[in-house]
């Protein structure tokens, strides 16, 4: 029986380049974030610098306004995108129209549940979402309690790149507000999860009851204190 040493020590990496070292051409890469909210900005930029190509990007939006994952599209390092929403992401529309990128668009709840299932060891599940729509084409259906459901398969990846507010050296992580979104699920579904933490804190600094993502799902941690955190659509109201 092959015996390999555990992966759950020495997770903290000194640099983004070090954290991304295992990335390879053709990898399936999940990236957390809802649009530009909760983006692992340094890791996203670091992938372009790494030079890996032909990536299968699995992310809700694949960037916007030329920022975030739009940098990967502009760099031409993506061969396929699995996402839920393009919106006004002109780089993704252009990459789709030119045929530079193969595009797969799926419902958001199905997207995240497929990812969750992969992380939880469930190969497929039935969902009501998409029945009677183009999403159902070619998929098995089954009735439970008189309602029809679609069989959807788990979605896994080689890497997950996530952004967290705070992490400890084991990879226990907390997120800030709505920046959490897909990241904890992607962390579960990837063979190697790399976390970009706004702040690296000591073991024990995060109360066990306050851990959003247990470190078992995180393999590499890099602290990045400065972030742009761009506003995608800044809306405010006047003070009374």
């Amino acid at each position: 029986m092959e015996h390999t040493s555990g992966r759950h020590r020495d997770k903290v990496r000194a640099s983004v380049a070090d954290a991304l070292a295992p990335l390879f051409d053709g990898a399936r890469v999940m990236v957390g974030g809802f649009g530009l909210c909760g983006n692992a900005e340094a890791l996203i930029a670091g992938v372009v610098a790494h030079g890996a190509r032909d990536l299968h990007l699995i992310s809700n939006n694949a960037g916007n306004l030329g920022k975030g994952l739009a940098q990967w599209l502009r760099a031409g390092i993506v061969k396929k995108v699995t996402c839920t929403y393009l919106g006004n992401n002109d780089d993704l529309h252009a990459a789709r129209e030119s045929g530079a990128v193969e595009l797969e668009v799926i419902p958001q709840g199905t997207f995240v549940e497929r990812i969750r299932a992969a992380g939880a060891g469930i190969p497929a599940f039935y969902t009501p979402t998409g029945v009677g729509t183009v999403v159902a084409e070619g998929k098995e259906t089954r009735a439970f309690g008189g309602r029809t459901y679609l069989l959807e398969e788990a979605l896994s990846a080689d890497f997950a790149l996530i952004r967290c507010h705070r992490a400890d050296p084991f990879g226990n992580a907390r997120f800030w507000r709505t920046a959490r979104n897909f990241s904890p699920l992607m962390a579960m579904a990837a063979k190697t999860t790399i976390a970009e933490a706004d702040e690296l804190v000591a073991l024990g600094a995060i109360d066990p009851d306050d851990v959003h993502l247990p470190g078992i799902f995180v393999h590499r941690v890099v602290e990045v204190r400065e972030h742009e955190d761009p506003f995608e659509y800044r809306r405010v109201r006047a003070r009374p």
Binding site: F34, W176, D229, E232, V236, R239
Partner: peptide
């Protein structure tokens, strides 16, 4: 809740339309 008062907006607190809330 409603849109934030000017100066209180947080880019990591958004709605599904990616607007600050």
């Amino acid at each position: 809740g409603p849109f934030p008062y000017e100066g209180d907006e947080d880019p990591q607190l958004i709605n599904a339309g990616k607007e600050t809330v």
